[in-house]
Design a protein around this nucleic acid. Structure first.
Lengths: 166, 166
DNA sequence: CCGTTGTTGAAAATGAATTTCATTTTCAAA
DNA sequence: TTTGAAAATGAAATTCATTTTCAACAACGG
């Protein structure tokens, strides 16, 4: 069975949720913004979910808790979470921006199934080293990199295998 | 001075253009499509350019040769070129799809400056190996990967360096 | 409490990608 | 050649995620 989030706890502890909220509040204060019930609800909903969420998906989840919260606020809050390091954008190149937890997570990369859209996370020291190496060689001050592998997962290959009897 | 296309000839030889055109024509025949003057013009214009072109940019260049050729045809032809392996899409995370030559090129990756948008190509065996390794480990049939490094190039750092006298 | 300043969310705007459709062109068979 | 079915073309319209606008509302320092 494929796992989606390999190094995460099954659920985030109360403690971690509190810490994440503090990080957000500190960030808001720092840049002169205000803390609101909507932002807290959105953060908590985001933390409760393990997948890679699009703005639209998170908005749906948030609405179950408070149907008054609009898409725009979710959109803007995700940007805030990215700003203070709680979330990061992952681009799976299907035209939709997705976000994942970043707080307390190991650096990792994704392998994405182009049939069903599911993804596996994997870890590799080498990719980070390569960023350093190449940056140094060409005199770039590197800030980040993206690395994704695309393919077809075992499940989808089984489904599509028409050589076996029906 | 940074180079953009490290392993390319400065200009494509007549011979290579002819070969590329043959590849396109064979592909068209293979999938039951027709060969047209527009498609040939678009292919030739594409081959003459060394940069990573958006549909819009290629359309502008094509119009210099034949102002009657529309955006839609360029858009559709780029997809055809990608289908028969003459072009490949590169996603630099600025929301615009770009294409580059693929015919007779070594496998490579890009490091992109987030200030000026210029890019350097680099080569690494390891990235391809990693694709194989990880795919095998998680039972994916891998098809491709994307790897980009983002940072700030030397030129842009110099421009932004306000510590030196004006 | 009050006023300033930031927030909210519906709606509109944006912009690249894609589709539609009436017209024109290709090309294989006659 | 001629012909006609199938595909190509390109302007315009559409789609769709993202981003901005704006008027009403809420946070929070004083």
């Amino acid at each position: 069975m494929l796992q989606k989030r390999i190094d995460d706890q099954p659920t985030l502890s109360r403690q971690m949720v509190r810490e994440a909220q503090e990080i957000l509040h500190r960030h808001l204060k720092g840049v002169g913004l205000k803390q609101t019930a909507q932002r807290d609800t959105i953060l908590r909903t985001f933390l409760e979910t393990r997948d890679h969420l699009s703005t639209d998906e998170l908005h749906r989840l948030v609405q179950k808790k408070d149907s008054g919260i609009g898409y725009t606020t979710v959109y803007r809050t995700l940007k805030l979470l990215a700003e203070c390091g709680l979330a990061s954008e992952v681009a799976f190149h299907d035209g939709i921006a997705r976000y994942e937890h970043q707080y307390n997570r190991r650096s990792h990369h994704h392998m994405v199934c182009t049939e069903c859209g599911s993804s596996v996370e994997f870890f590799s020291q080498e990719v980070g080293k390569l960023e350093q190496e190449i940056g140094h060689k060409y005199h770039y001050l590197t800030t980040r990199h993206t690395f994704q592998i695309y393919g077809i997962c075992e499940d989808c290959r089984k489904k599509n295998d028409t050589s076996r009897p029906l």
